[in-house]
Design a protein around this nucleic acid. Structure first.
Lengths: 258, 258
DNA sequence: TGCATTCGTGTGCGCCAAACACTATCCTCG
DNA sequence: CGAGGATAGTGTTTGGCGCACACGAATGCA
């Protein structure tokens, strides 16, 4: 066995390169969008090679920043794609990430011709980038149900209707307003501010801000490692109830009893 | 931006190496165990460098096979650890995997001195291997609740009590026998065989075999990509109910209505 | 001042998860 | 061969929670 951890001198040419791809999501006009850059005839995700002295997540942030100036971006590792043939130009494994940004955080699209594309109508993408987006989406949908990532898509101050729309857009279905508000209330994850949003039309809405509910407490969420690299916001749990269509039952009973 | 996907000729020396580490779990004596190999004063996970023409999951399987002969191993990518300093011997990123094997599938421990260690009492481990195991554990616990991975830890034929013990051992708490059996029954994921297990003591138990319940149907589980690389068994969903201690509520309502 | 638009609020019902205890079957040993 | 030990197998009740559902309030504008 070649011991990964105790290797001697570097092989003179180790022919596997390591890259990062980042699927950056935001919500514009009540629709989920991904950030893409042009690549010849098709489009591609922001990407880059990992530098020798650079952690993976920083490489991902760098790739993102090169395409769109943004700060305070929530970002998480997704999956590492390592098919031998995924890149016809040699062996490049890709540590894929996905990121969530509030529209108001994105300052500008740096690289010319970079664009937001609605996920409902994506253009042709190079390599396996479509697959990366698809996977990021299912991950995002799942994560939405047991964490508070959703808030990453909103500005600091937001209305409950805006929050609800985030959930509706990502989950792809409408939610009941009263049930939604009751849950948010019970969870205690938002606090009203003194401000109101004066909308163009209709009654003004109360503005809220996000407030972490539980202490991190090392429950060991699905991504404890990634979490350690993230802003603390991510840690608070909205609470997991994952069910699918039809009867779905877990073998394991719910903890905590009645 | 350096375009990962359209790079020119190889850099003559690209100094990042890519390895795999594998946390292999099994259940022995009603306790969860991990397979470890000796490494100087400490212990380590089965690991290896990824070969230039080798997919990541195959590298992981190879690392596993070198330590313990086994076939039909369920294996999934876990996370890619890329801290710059994680390996004092140079930049090696590790695509960590975890695997589940039934004890009867492990033929033998190939490398001398490789051993099963109970997760309750692990020895000193090198590098970040302890962290990998911890993360694999939380992933396993979560996955247990919305997939049928648990069956990977059992032989082809098993009793319901054995199945229940798998869940109890991994979740670290006891389950109610009747509730457990009712759920398994409702899910329709096991079928009784004509055989019984003659135990040393007590009433003989009916033997069952695992049966995928739902068609794959591309619901988009948490790991659709990994799933595509897996035996079909993994796909059937036991059904997700993730709850934690205390009141936990999801913002998103349950689909399918009442 | 009326009309359009968005905000904000409570109840009732049905389902599902959890709690809970006893009989059946086999083996062993005296 | 009978008693005891061990494990297998089996239903009912109850309470909490998720879902469905409709209308008055506040504002801007014509």
């Amino acid at each position: 066995m070649v011991d990964t951890n105790q290797t001697g001198p570097l092989p003179s040419r180790y022919p596997i390169r390591v890259g990062v791809d980042v699927a950056v999501f935001t919500i514009r006009d009540s629709a989920l969008h991904v950030l893409l850059a042009p690549a010849d005839v098709a489009w591609r995700l922001p990407s880059d090679l990992v530098r020798p002295d650079e952690p993976l997540d920083l490489a991902a942030r760098r790739a993102l920043t090169e395409v769109a100036g943004a700060s305070d971006v929530w970002l998480e590792q997704l999956f590492t794609f390592g098919d031998v043939q995924r890149n016809p130009d040699g062996r490049v494994i890709s540590v894929a990430h996905y990121a969530l940004v509030a529209v108001d955080v994105v300052r500008e699209l740096g690289e010319r011709d970079a664009q937001w594309w609605p996920i409902a109508a994506l253009p042709q993408l190079i390599l396996d980038h479509r697959r990366i987006i698809d996977y990021a989406l299912t991950r995002l949908r799942n994560k939405l149900e047991y964490t508070t990532v959703g808030f990453q898509l909103l500005p600091q101050r937001f209305t409950l209707s805006e929050l609800q729309r985030v959930y509706e857009v990502i989950l792809g279905r409408t939610l009941d307003k009263r049930n939604f508000r009751r849950k948010v209330d019970v969870l205690g994850i938002v606090k009203p501010t003194r401000e109101q949003r004066v909308s163009v039309t209709g009654r003004p809405a109360q503005l809220y801000r996000f407030v972490a509910a539980e202490a991190p407490e090392a429950i060991g969420g699905p991504e404890p490692l990634a979490a350690a690299q993230q802003p603390s916001v991510q840690i608070a749990r909205i609470g997991p109830v994952l069910r699918r269509r039809g009867r779905v039952i877990s073998i394991a009973p719910v903890e905590g009893g009645r």
